[in-house]
Amino acid sequence: MKGKYKIIIAILVVVTGISYLVFAGVKDTFVYYLTIDELITKVPEVYNDKVRVSGTVVTGSIDNNIDRSLKFKITDGDAVVDVEYQGIVPDIFADDVEAVVEGTLNEQNIFKADLLLAKCPTKYEGEDQLKNPNGYQYKKEKG
């Protein structure tokens, strides 16, 4: 019986430790996931808070400089947010895709992102795209 109590105590210690890890892990690393609308209504208290925002990349807004600073705008169809980012750009990132950025909005209302993810815009395997009588066209040479 003595052994059993010891094990129960040891299990309690381990479980407490893990619970603490979860608590501390969540507390130190969580970020709010906001829509663009929520981001804008939270100005100015949102300044310098780490948040994650997603929106559609405004067509033609991507300015990808050789020194790796990437500027673009995201929108929810209504409001527009300017984003600046340095780092790895996912292959899927392009005009009109849904971009997810994590970082902070500064007082000039520019979103300084340190993480950029992109999601494909097509949610469903649509057959509409197949209805084009010529099927798919070869893409025009990109300039």
Binding site: G17, I18, L21, V22, A24, G25, V26, D28, T29, F30, V31, Y32, Y33, L34, R52, E102, L115
Partner: peptide
């Protein structure tokens, strides 16, 4: 009512000790 996420730092912090 708020969407909150935890990223790779959470998973690393918790899972590395385990």
């Amino acid at each position: 009512g708020n969407k909150i996420l935890v990223g790779p730092p959470y998973f690393n912090k918790v899972n590395v000790p385990i």
